[in-house]
Amino acid sequence: MNTSRRFLLAPAWRLAPLAGRICLVASLALATLALATSPPVAAQERTAVIGARADVRPWSDPLEALGTLRADESVTLSATVTEIIAELNFRDGEAVEAGQLLIRLEDSEERAQLRAAQAQRDERRSAVDRLSQLQSRNMAPRADVEDSQARLRQVEAEIQGLEARLTNYRLRAPFDGVVGFRNISVGSLVTPGTELVTLDKLDVMKLDFSVPEVYLAILSPGLKLSARSVAFPEEVFEGEVASIGSRVDPVSRSITVRAEIDNPELRLRPGMLMEVVLQRSPRQAVVVPESALIPSGDRQYVLVIDEADENRLERREVRVGERRTGQAEIIDGLEPNELVVSHGVQRAREGDRVRLLGIASEENSIREILEAHREEGEA
């Protein structure tokens, strides 16, 4: 009985190495089959990225400030005499030309006095002519001629005075501009000092802002700047420095700068708050999208796409200068027109060959590239 049990167990122990060998051979066969049926490395799907050119662009170091707009010319027309308004020739917010009559006060009495003075002038002028003829014939003394000429000059001076007074009854626009609200009516009695209407010249705006005195050395007339307003968040208004204040504020240690901004569409208004970016140290710089930068400690890298080597990636260290929103200045490490990975940096690795979906630029946005690629995939 025991002999039989040992006989049955012995073959199972001896068969174990043989089963292991059979499993090993099967595994090798499956691995060989998998390698034979898998695609080659070159045919495998490459990492999709979007590139960007290292462009040479005008660049500057921004200096930010807050400023207030003022009209290029601004005046409030006021009455200088006590009289009743006889005529109003403008509407609220109307654009007027220089010399245009805006308001006429009642001036019938002054015009009557002017007509009387003009008649008197004609009379005395005739008297001077008669006495001059008589004096040429020695029939009138020279003194009478001189007295008549003096009286003529006197009445002419009175006429000039009356004409000057009449200008106080007619208020004209001193320059081209836009009038404000009309808060007066025909028939209203006005007195000296009464404000009648405002007039602003808005085709060019003055922008006043303060700059710390440490930047005084870089300030000069003609320095370019850009300005934004919350009223037009998508609009950038370009201008330049017109003048620099003559004094530094001893409390804030800042100096006032005045710039001029063209306003042909008259959208900007006096009193508006503007965010100013002063373009100091203007230069030409190599610029890449900020998304292309790969930070590593205190160093910055980019992935350069070698187009001559089937879009192979090269990890290269660069030195970064100033940054703007979405852009970075490259001081060293990158040549103009080189192609770098701007989107897909996280998935790409040095040495990989990538699939370039497109090159982002001002004419070809990221969204347009992705939409075009999606349409190609659906087709």
Rank of each mutant, 00 (worst) to 15 (best):
G333W: 03
P174F: 08
R247A: 13
T68N: 09
V341H: 02
D298E: 15
Q300M: 12
I369N: 03
V128E: 11
E317Y: 06
R316A: 07
S365I: 01
V155Y: 04
V145G: 07
G245W: 05
F237C: 01
A140H: 06
V197S: 04
R5Q: 15
L28N: 10
R269S: 13
L313S: 03
V155W: 06
I330V: 15
S342G: 08
A16G: 11
Q120E: 15
V248R: 03
R347S: 13
D144K: 11
N183W: 00
S252I: 01
I84H: 09
I366E: 12
S252F: 04
R353V: 00
A43T: 14
K224N: 10
T191D: 07
I330T: 06
D147N: 12
A112Y: 09
E235V: 13
S220Q: 15
D203C: 00
E350L: 01
D262N: 11
N183L: 10
G20C: 13
T194S: 14
P282Q: 05
V304C: 02
Q279G: 08
E260M: 09
A19M: 13
L207F: 05
L339W: 03
V178D: 05
H373N: 13
A285D: 03
L223T: 08
F90E: 01
D176P: 03
T82D: 07
P270Y: 05
E368T: 12
A328F: 03
R130Q: 10
A328P: 04
V230H: 10
A42N: 11
A348K: 08
A372H: 10
V25T: 13
E109D: 14
N263V: 03
F7D: 10
V211E: 06
A36H: 14
R170F: 00
L199W: 02
V251E: 14
L8E: 11
H373C: 00
N364S: 13
N337F: 11
I218N: 09
R6G: 10
T82S: 15
E375T: 11
L370C: 01
S60D: 09
Q279T: 00
V155R: 08
A34H: 09
D262H: 04
V178W: 05
A372C: 07
V340L: 04
E362S: 14
I184P: 02
E73D: 13
V186H: 02
D147L: 15
R312Y: 01
A48M: 09
S136P: 00
A98H: 07
A231V: 12
P62R: 02
V41W: 10
M272I: 04
S361E: 07
E235M: 10
A71E: 07
D332W: 09
V241N: 03
F175C: 08
I159P: 02
V345C: 04
E375N: 11
E322C: 01
A43H: 11
G51V: 08
P58N: 15
E163R: 14
E235Y: 08
L313D: 07
M1H: 13
D61G: 00
V345H: 06
L266P: 04
I330R: 03
T80S: 15
P250G: 02
P289M: 01
R142G: 14
M205Y: 02
